[in-house]
Amino acid sequence: MGKVVLVTGAARQLAGRFVRRVQREPDVARVIAVDSVRPERHLGGAEFVQADIRQPTIARVLAEHAVDTVVHLDVTGTPAPTFGVGSGPGSGRNPRGRATLKETNVIGTMQLLGACQKAPSVQRLVVKSSTNVYGSAPRDPAVFDESTPPKSLPSGGFAKDTVEVEGYVRGFARRRPDVAVCVLRFANILGPHADTPLAEYFSLPVLPTVLGYDPRLQFVHEEDVMEVLRIASSEPRRGTLNSGTFNIAGDGVLLLSQTARRLGKPTLPLLLPALGWVRSALRVVGMTDFSPEQVRLLTHGRVVRTTEMRQTLGFEPAYTTAETFADFARSRKPGLLPPERLAHSVDRLAEALLDQPADASGGDGHHRSHAT
Rank of each mutant, 00 (worst) to 15 (best):
R60T: 13
R60D: 15
G114H: 14
V49H: 08
E47C: 09
N105Q: 11
G92R: 02
G88Q: 10
E47H: 10
I53F: 01
F48V: 04
V67I: 10
P79N: 13
D68I: 06
V71G: 00
R38E: 14
P81H: 04
R60C: 06
G114L: 02
Q55S: 13
P39Q: 10
R54A: 02
A46V: 04
V49E: 07
Q117N: 13
T76E: 04
L62A: 04
S87W: 03
L62G: 00
R41Y: 07
T100K: 04
D35A: 03
R96K: 07
P95G: 12
T82D: 09
L113D: 01
P79I: 05
V67A: 00
R98C: 06
A46C: 09
T100S: 05
D68K: 02
T109M: 01
P89E: 12
R98L: 05
G88A: 09
R54W: 03
R41G: 08
V71N: 02
V61A: 12
G77M: 04
E40W: 05
S91H: 15
A33Q: 05
S91C: 14
V61W: 05
A33F: 01
L113Y: 02
G88R: 10
T69H: 02
A46G: 07
P56W: 13
G77A: 12
G86D: 10
A33T: 02
P56N: 10
P39H: 10
P56T: 12
N105V: 15
V85T: 15
A51R: 11
G45A: 13
V67Y: 01
E40L: 09
S36E: 08
P39F: 11
G108H: 00
D74S: 02
T104L: 13
T82V: 04
T69P: 05
R41Q: 11
L62V: 06
G114W: 07
G45H: 11
L62D: 03
S91T: 15
L112Q: 00
I53L: 06
T100R: 07
A59W: 09
E103L: 07
T78H: 03
N94T: 05
